[in-house]
């Protein structure tokens, strides 16, 4: 998967026709093999752009900040990113007419060790669903499969799971990088900030991490697109996908809903209901 040439051509064309003010893409870090997102403002910088299987980040995230608001933006989206973008469009966070979207029919990106990333192996919709131009050939929807880590944890006893998750919440340093890297966490004021640092009891405690991560994952339940930007941003590599994947599993098994953001106007599982939803857990 290497679309470097095509993306440079398209970005160059858009700048020379004056269709966009900013192009969001990927470039090399300059000191290793990895790539970082880059915002390009002029035609002469277009040759920095890249797209290979190391282009892991979700660029839709950069649309929620002030410097791209009300500007004409061109960007690259993979399958998962395009669904996040679709949700942002549905929730009125960006305007479609301001965007020029290059969709990718994604073949999966790599993780830190160079293998195909777990979310790409389990990906249900690798093709971009909203685009002006599609690169690559679309392969269509795939079957839902339960995440391997979730299956493993479900077999453990309750006390084992308590120990496992206590370690995770204890290691969290409350840097909020997960929240800032999530394209769907765009609230200007976030409710989890009330557990923030004070003089007498710091923010960096197990209980405040529990409060923040659980609230965050439940507010994203039914909307998470499994791009794993949060996990890539986490400085201590916490397995944050566990919380999202469990929500996804429960929602799929009970409400037969998955793949939020497939069409514009679809707001996810928590914005609709069915009269036949399971009722047996209620007294």
């Amino acid at each position: 998967m290497d679309y470097t040439k095509q993306i440079q051509d398209i970005a160059g064309r858009l700048f020379s026709e004056g269709k966009i003010d900013i192009f969001i893409g990927y470039r090399n870090t300059g000191f290793d093999e990895n790539q970082v997102p880059v915002l390009i403002h002029q035609y002469k910088d277009v040759d920095q752009l890249l797209f290979t299987d190391k282009s892991v980040f979700n660029l839709a995230n950069y649309l929620k900040y002030e410097h791209t608001r009300n500007k004409r933006v061109g960007l690259i989206v993979k399958g998962c990113d395009s669904r996040a973008l679709n949700l942002m469009l549905t929730e009125s966070q960006v305007k479609r007419e301001n965007l020029y979207i290059i969709g990718i029919a994604c073949e999966g990106v790599v993780n830190e060790t160079g293998e195909k990333a777990q979310n790409c192996v389990e990906c249900m919709m690798p093709d971009a669903v909203v685009y002006d131009e599609l690169l690559g050939s679309a392969t269509g929807k795939r079957e839902y499969q339960v995440n391997a880590d979730i299956r493993e944890l479900d077999e453990k006893t309750l006390t084992d799971r308590v120990e496992y998750f206590e370690e995770i919440f204890e290691n969290c340093i409350r840097c909020n990088a997960c929240r800032h890297s999530c394209p769907l966490c765009y609230c200007a004021k976030c409710c989890i900030d009330q557990e923030t640092a004070t003089l007498f009891h710091g923010a960096n405690t197990t209980s405040s991490a529990f409060h923040a991560l659980m609230t965050w994952s439940l507010h994203l339940a039914g909307r998470c697109v499994d791009c794993r930007n949060c996990e890539k941003a986490c400085p201590i590599h916490l397995p944050l996908h566990l919380l999202h994947k469990l929500n996804e599993k429960v929602i799929y098994e009970n409400f037969q809903e998955n793949l939020a953001g497939m069409t514009e106007g679809d707001r996810g599982a928590f914005y609709k209901y069915s009269l036949s939803d399971p009722d047996d857990f209620i007294l």
């Binding site: 944890l153 479900d154 309750l158 006390t159 799971r161 308590v162 998750f165 206590e166 529990f210 659980m214 994952s217 439940l218 339940a221 039914g222 566990l242 919380l243 469990l246 929500n247 429960v250 929602i251 009970n254 409400f255 599982a269 928590f270 914005y271 209901y273 069915s274 009269l275 939803d277 399971p278 009722d279 857990f281 209620i282 007294l283």
Partner: peptide
Amino acid sequence: NYYARRRFLVTKKLLNFVGFHENRVQFSW
């Protein structure tokens, strides 16, 4: 309450997943 019902189920399952006994959080009509 139909919207709430969906949210309750997911909340209950997630809390159970991270280590709370399922009877800690209960719902009734």
